[in-house]
């Protein structure tokens, strides 16, 4: 295998990793505020179908991505109202959001099955894209791939350097303390949950508008759940979450290149890999209970009601 052959493999790894990275970043922010939203899969599916439908009718991919984000926010808002204002159990509500999203997306997407449209194209960056080898390797991606790198640095700055990042972390670690010094725990958690919804919706739209520009029922195939696992795997740190996403991107595309590389295993068995690897890395990271205890936001999954 020549070095040039690695370029498409690398490109598809990055493409497969990008939606995972967006969804996991969103969930990371949500969880850092102390809220566990298990509805990522549902929000991604609805984002995928909304993005596809709007892009199909308007002909604008930009509007499609915006619709994906907006629908993710809308679903996250339902979750936020239930868990934050009405104090429902976060695990149960998150599961409900996923089940609802699966049903809603299948229902809304029934007219779009089998329809295709032109997907998101890679950017051509003057000069950089023309560099031999490194041009096609690093400077031939679509805008959202670069966006995910920008998001990484933005999150690192937000959590490490910004005042509101600190407040968000305080809310996640000790909502009572954050409340006592006058911050609105519920308000901040609303923001974090809605941001998570926007990112999940965007991730879903990336699936249906960039990776495979078409709508298939249940097309996320568990990616929302893998994103949840990535947040744990990345011990709630943006950089590790992104690295985890690339690792999973690589595992996901292995099934497509496996046959070509002379691995003669039935495609179904190769397709199991991402799920098995998810379990494996979860075991690896949670083997030592202190790893989770030291990194997980203290109030994760617990309701907080300031006035009672």
């Amino acid at each position: 295998m020549s070095v040039e052959q690695l370029i498409p493999i690398f490109a598809s790894t990055v493409a497969a990793a990008t939606p995972l990275a967006y969804a996991a970043f969103g969930e990371l922010v949500t969880e850092r505020s102390g809220v566990l939203n298990l509805g990522v899969e549902g929000m991604m599916l609805v984002g995928a179908v909304a993005g596809f439908a709007v892009a199909f009718h308007t002909g604008s991919l930009g509007l499609g991505f915006a619709a994906g984000m907006f629908s993710g926010v809308a679903l996250a808002l339902i979750f936020a109202v239930l868990t934050l204002s009405l104090q429902t159990n976060q695990v149960a509500t998150g599961l409900a959001l996923t089940l609802f999203g699966v049903g809603l997306s299948a229902f809304a997407g029934r007219d779009y099955v089998g329809v295709t449209l032109g997907g998101l194209q890679p950017l051509t960056i003057p000069l950089l894209s023309d560099i031999p080898f490194f041009g096609p390797l690093l400077f031939h991606f679509d805008i959202l791939v670069y966006g995910s790198i920008v998001a990484l640095f933005a999150l690192q700055w937000f959590f490490g350097r910004s005042r509101w990042g600190l407040v968000l972390r305080a809310v996640g670690e000790s909502p009572a303390s954050a409340h006592a010094i006058g911050y609105s725990v519920i308000g901040i958690r609303y923001m974090a949950v809605l941001f998570g919804g926007a990112m999940s919706g965007l991730a879903g739209a990336y699936l249906s508008l960039a990776i495979t520009p078409l709508w298939v029922e249940g097309m996320t195939a568990g990616r929302g759940w893998i994103a949840l696992a990535l947040v744990v795997f990345g011990t709630w740190k943006p950089m590790r979450v992104l690295l985890g996403a690339y690792l999973f991107g690589g595992v996901t595309i292995l099934q497509f290149y496996g046959q070509g590389m002379g691995i003669h295993i039935a495609s179904q068995l190769l397709s199991m890999l991402p799920y098995l690897v998810t379990i494996f890395v979860l075991v690896l990271i949670s083997r030592n209970p202190k790893t989770i205890l030291l990194n997980q936001p203290m109030s994760l999954g617990q309701s907080y009601y300031p006035h009672s």
Binding site: I78, L82, L86, T88, N89, A92, T93, L95, A96, L97, L99, F100, G101, V102, G103, L104, A106, F107
Partner: peptide, 13 residues
């Protein structure tokens, strides 16, 4: 699926 998801949401609420 839509009805089933809605049912659970309404119940939680």
């Amino acid at each position: 699926g839509l009805f089933q998801g809605l049912l659970l949401f309404y119940l939680l609420a």
